[in-house]
Computed example of a mutant assay.
Amino acid sequence: MGLDIQIPGCDGFHVARAFRTSPSLAVVPIIAHTSLAEREIIERGKAAGIDAYCRKGNSPRSLLRLIAHLTPPRRHLPAT
């Protein structure tokens, strides 16, 4: 899941913590998409359960590489 840290009304840390408390969503990788790069943001993200960061302004390839790294390869089901 891609997550913006600066969401109006609530922040991405709150959303990440809520995901991590849900049994069905706890294993979903979370990538923060943010223009913020401060060490405090990264530490708060780790504590909230965010798995990785992608800086806004980076190429889409950066985000795609993170997604590929964080998600397991899809298994093809046998034909029936």
Score class of each variant (00 low, 15 high):
Met1Ala: 11
Met1His: 11
Leu3Val: 06
Leu3Asn: 03
Leu3Arg: 03
Leu3Trp: 04
Asp4Gln: 04
Ile5Gly: 02
Ile5Lys: 03
Ile5Glu: 00
Gln6Thr: 07
Gln6Ala: 11
Ile7Thr: 06
Ile7Met: 15
Pro8His: 10
Gly9Ile: 01
Cys10Asn: 10
Asp11Arg: 09
Gly12Gln: 01
Phe13Trp: 03
Phe13Asp: 02
Phe13Cys: 00
His14Tyr: 12
Ala16Thr: 03
Ala16Gln: 01
Arg17Ile: 00
Arg17Trp: 02
Arg17Gln: 13
Arg20Ser: 02
Arg20Gly: 05
Arg20Lys: 15
Thr21Asn: 08
Thr21His: 08
Thr21Pro: 00
Ser22Gln: 11
Ser22Asp: 15
Ser24Pro: 05
Ser24Val: 09
Leu25Phe: 05
Leu25Tyr: 00
Val27Gly: 02
Val28Cys: 09
Val28Met: 11
Val28Asn: 01
Val28Glu: 00
Pro29Met: 05
Pro29Ile: 03
Ile30Phe: 03
Ile30Asp: 04
Ile30Cys: 05
Ile30Met: 04
Ile30Tyr: 05
Ile30Ser: 02
Ile31Met: 15
Ala32Thr: 08
Thr34Asn: 06
Ser35Arg: 05
Ser35Leu: 10
Ser35Trp: 01
Leu36Phe: 08
Leu36Tyr: 12
Ala37Val: 09
Glu38Thr: 12
Glu38Gln: 10
Glu38Met: 12
Arg39Gln: 12
Glu40Val: 07
Glu40Ala: 11
Ile42Met: 08
Gly45Thr: 02
Lys46Gln: 10
Lys46Trp: 11
Ala47Lys: 09
Ala47Asp: 10
Ala48Thr: 01
Gly49Glu: 04
Ile50Thr: 06
Ile50Arg: 05
Asp51Ile: 07
Ala52Met: 07
Tyr53Gln: 03
Cys54Thr: 09
Arg55Gln: 13
Arg55Gly: 10
Lys56Glu: 07
Lys56Gln: 06
Gly57Trp: 13
Gly57Asp: 08
Gly57Cys: 11
Asn58Glu: 15
Asn58Met: 12
Ser59Asp: 12
Ser59Arg: 10
Pro60Thr: 15
Pro60His: 05
Arg61Tyr: 11
Arg61Trp: 05
Ser62Ala: 14
Ser62Val: 12
Leu63Trp: 04
Leu64Ser: 08
Leu64Lys: 10
Arg65Asn: 03
Arg65Tyr: 07
Leu66Met: 12
Leu66Ile: 11
Leu66Glu: 03
Ile67His: 04
Ile67Leu: 15
Ala68Val: 09
Ala68Gln: 15
His69Gly: 04
Leu70Val: 07
Leu70His: 13
Leu70Asp: 03
Leu70Phe: 06
Leu70Ala: 01
Thr71Ala: 08
Thr71Met: 08
Pro72Arg: 13
Pro72Ala: 15
Pro73Ala: 10
Arg74Phe: 06
Arg75Ser: 13
Arg75Asn: 11
Arg75Gly: 13
Arg75Gln: 14
Leu77Lys: 13
Leu77Phe: 05
Leu77Arg: 14
Pro78Asn: 02
Ala79Phe: 08
Thr80Gly: 15
Thr80Ile: 02
Thr80Tyr: 12
